[in-house]
Design a protein around this nucleic acid. Sequence first.
DNA 1: TGCATATGACTGACCAGTCAGTTATATATA
DNA 2: TATATATAACTGACTGGTCAGTCATATGCA
Lengths: 214, 214
Amino acid sequence: MNQFTVSKISEPRWRRRAEARPEEILDAALAEFTTRGFEAARMEDIAKRAGLSKAAIYLYFPSKMAVLEALIKAKVGPLAKQAQTLATMGAENPLLALRMLATAAAHRMSDPRVIAVPRLVIGISGRFPEIATYYREHVVALARGALETLIEAAMTKGQIRRVDKNAVVRAFIGPLFFEAMWTHVLSGETALNEPQKLIEQQFDVLLSGLEPRA
Amino acid sequence: MNQFTVSKISEPRWRRRAEARPEEILDAALAEFTTRGFEAARMEDIAKRAGLSKAAIYLYFPSKMAVLEALIKAKVGPLAKQAQTLATMGAENPLLALRMLATAAAHRMSDPRVIAVPRLVIGISGRFPEIATYYREHVVALARGALETLIEAAMTKGQIRRVDKNAVVRAFIGPLFFEAMWTHVLSGETALNEPQKLIEQQFDVLLSGLEPRA
DNA sequence: TGCATATGACTGACCAGTCAGTTATATATA
DNA sequence: TATATATAACTGACTGGTCAGTCATATGCA
């Protein structure tokens, strides 16, 4: 190896600046935590996946638990902003915004990595209720709030009927959440392959309802 | 303690027939597994909860994993029958059957023990995919199937419009599942306190849809 | 006595977290 | 430029505690 350094001149032998490491560790941890579970995941496996030794992880995080917390916070941060902008962006045509939002969400949910965090949270919620609470307040409650704002706007504009807003929120999120769990947790054959179609069908039911036309 | 057996004459000092033990162990295991997670739950705690020593558990089950498997199977068995009878029972008035079913389901879901198993399955699905698959085939797929039968019947009778059946199944299960997770996993304030009202609102949306009346 | 039911005390494996020591790079000095 | 020194980034090997599973022994009962 220590020849003349002829090849790959510009690439340093020691690959990365250290600042990049924590993120790599968190990515590796997410993968290990979701497949093996928090308790059963071995720090050494996380380290190997991140391309480090176990001891190196402890240069960046004081404990396994701290890795979990950092992981949740890191994955949650971006979502908060998204939810906030969502409500304002869709003010003009809220119903259209809802439709586009649902399609985008269905599309993203075909990627197993997207539900990795919710899945992890469900798994550890019994043991670490604070994390579950954190996730509720910083993710799900915000998403529900943003949806409610859009729904309220759609009602005010006369785009949809006035019904219980919470019921509508559940009717939006629930089916998608259920299908995601069916797909990625239970490995079932899925409708998420065709997100466009899935949402069309879902909106057909949701908007026109199931009553036979009078 | 080993006095004259004067008190509580009819109660045997050695409390129960052995056949009852496995069930008690499974109940204890379910409680421990759901709160601590499969890996973090200690066999000794399960034993203590069941009123036994750890070694006694190994008289009934060969391993921790075997306890988990027996647990899933025990909790799953009854559901299969329920699903089957459901479809036939509701043949006469399928829409009414769906409504009653949803109300009953919402009612039961206010009890955290009801979603304990699904929650557990989600937590361990990464590590034990066979169990997830078992659960899909023996519970969720059956439930979906039964619902589909009812929905098909309702369509044939003209009680509801003809739309994609899978979308309807999702629209029935999804919102309830989502609310159950929100309630018991994330400890959020819940609409499950008033299941009757919850289902009424849900059916109002589902049957009449959201489009403003023409 | 023999069988069923049970347990306390033990063991071997496993793993989070530590630490003394190593390697690569940056900087200082001549 | 070459060499010395300092420091940042990292690791192999270890430790102490934990826990699934075992076993020799005990107790109630036919």
